[in-house]
């Protein structure tokens, strides 16, 4: 009874599957936000991670079970399997001691919504203004951008014709985006989802 129970932001949702598109949450990924100037922390970070930090827009770097996503010229998101964030944090923190940097555990801040399948780009095009065409957005790329009315990081893996579009989203936006993605996939057979944000409001000024 006292054993703590962890709940992911989309724990109340079941994966959605249709012939050409599927949607699911990948919960509890370890995520660390790393800030620092490449000239200041680049070498130490590279030795701790096992690979240099990506240095330009769109780039990602993979080292073992760590993926580093470029978010800005002094800003990275390090993604690692669930539970690995503490160890990674300690290792990096030790390596960066004495440098001007900021390392923050954001594993609980964000969750990942994976939209996969041949129609994944068509579905997400309805919510995102950026160019999702494989000529512009290739597997292995990261984009910080807007999805509907929320900021997201879009990390693309898989292949050009069967991409995995991973949206890294704030936990409080996860259900909103989940439902809009389902709505956008309706023509491909995804079932409609009702947002949990549909609740009783007390609005005395309007009564």
């Amino acid at each position: 009874m006292t054993e703590p129970v962890a709940a992911s932001p989309l724990a109340h949702r079941e994966p959605l599957t249709a012939e050409r598109v599927s949607v699911s949450e990948t919960a509890f990924l370890g995520m660390l936000s790393l800030r620092g100037r490449p000239a200041t922390i680049g070498e130490q970070a590279a030795s701790a991670l096992g690979a240099p930090l990506p240095s330009a827009v769109g780039e990602t770097a993979v080292a073992g079970n760590i993926t580093a996503l470029w978010l800005g010229p002094d800003d990275w998101l390090l993604v690692t399997p669930p539970g690995n964030e503490a160890a990674l944090g300690t290792k990096l923190s030790d390596a960066l001691t004495g440098t001007h940097h900021q390392l923050t555990d954001v594993s609980d801040y964000y969750t990942a919504i994976d939209v996969t399948g041949a129609a994944a780009r068509d579905v997400m095009s309805k919510l995102m203004v950026i160019d999702l065409h494989p000529r512009a957005l290739k597997p292995g790329m990261i984009v910080a951008t807007v999805c509907a009315k929320a900021n997201v990081w879009l990390h693309v893996t898989g292949s050009a014709d069967r991409p995995v579009l991973r949206l890294i989203v704030r936990r409080s936006h996860a259900d909103y985006l989940w439902c809009l993605i389902a709505e956008s996939g309706r023509e491909f057979g995804l079932p409609p989802q009702l947002p949990v944000g549909r609740v009783k409001l007390h609005l005395p000024h309007f009564e």
Partner: peptide, 13 residues
């Protein structure tokens, strides 16, 4: 006109 912009939904710079 010289003006400031913030890439608020991107790199935040």
């Amino acid at each position: 006109f010289a003006e400031r912009w913030n890439h608020s939904s991107g790199c935040r710079k």
